[in-house]
């Protein structure tokens, strides 16, 4: 996909440089153009098309909300991400169709999440690929025999070279498939990325545990799954959502 052309609008020079610098490090980001305020941002909008705009909210002159309102009138508006130190504008921000809302100071992994959301937003709703049920049962070869494993019995999946190791109960099986592919296909079935090399089944998680030595792990019946800092927020959110849904469906 074409790399993103990003506009950064922020009146504080150090934060502006920092944000632009961090954005430029992302592989999916191409050009980063900076504006020191709303007025300059509007002027720059005439100079080309942007895929995304990171807007500070409190600025002298035109503020971030004003710029966002102007952007939403464009025929092909950029994806808007608000960046602010104080979180009392969130409702209004999402009312303006913002893709994300970052709180300063932000973590690198949180910025990565925002960039991923922009990518997702640009590519539109996921192209109707395979439905989750296509792999509700997977087929693995074991010593010349073919066995079938139900997706819902799998506690977690671990990347293993060109293969993925599927863990269920005491057993584990190798499947010739990429973790990224399984992540897409099994997303709706409740499998979430916990780490660069792990997908975990939300329904199999019995406990989240943080220790000073081992960091965060998700405990399942088939073993412990490491959770990287980068994925911890989303995993927690998905677990919370899953628990809520379960509560709701009680008799």
């Amino acid at each position: 996909m074409k790399r993103l052309r990003v506009l950064v609008v922020e009146d504080e020079p150090s934060t502006r440089t920092e944000l632009a610098g961090q954005l430029a490090e992302h592989s999916s980001v191409g050009d980063v153009v900076c504006a020191d305020g709303g007025d300059e941002a509007v002027r720059l909008l005439g100079s080309g098309i942007f895929d995304a705009a990171f807007l500070d909210i409190a600025m002298p002159g035109l503020n971030g909300m004003d710029v966002a309102r102007i952007l939403t009138r464009l025929s092909d508006p950029p994806a808007i991400v608000f960046v602010t130190a104080y979180d009392n504008h969130a409702v209004e921000a999402f009312g303006l169709g913002a893709v994300d809302y970052l709180l300063k100071p932000f973590r690198a992994e949180r910025l990565a999440e925002a960039v991923a959301r922009i990518d997702h937003h640009r590519s539109g709703p996921a192209s109707a690929g395979e439905k989750a049920d296509d792999l509700a049962v997977v087929q693995v070869e074991l010593a010349g025999r073919t066995i079938f494993i139900r997706r819902d019995d799998i506690a977690f999946a671990e990347a293993h070279g060109d293969y993925v190791r599927l863990h269920s109960g005491e057993d584990s099986h190798l499947l010739r498939q990429s973790l990224t592919y399984l992540e897409q296909v099994w997303d709706e079935a409740g499998f979430v990325r916990a780490h660069r090399s792990y997908l975990v089944n939300l329904a199999a998680v019995t406990e989240l545990r943080v220790t000073s030595t081992a960091g965060l792990v998700a405990v399942t019946g088939a073993g412990e799954v490491p959770v990287s800092r980068r994925h911890s927020r989303l995993l927690r959110e998905r677990l919370l959502q899953a628990a809520r849904n379960k509560d709701r469906s009680r008799p």
Binding site: L208, V210, T211, S212, K246
Partner: peptide, 12 residues
């Protein structure tokens, strides 16, 4: 030395 453990069902 710190340990925080939580069962998913109490998160919400």
């Amino acid at each position: 030395d710190i340990t925080v453990q939580v069962a998913p069902e109490v998160l919400p």
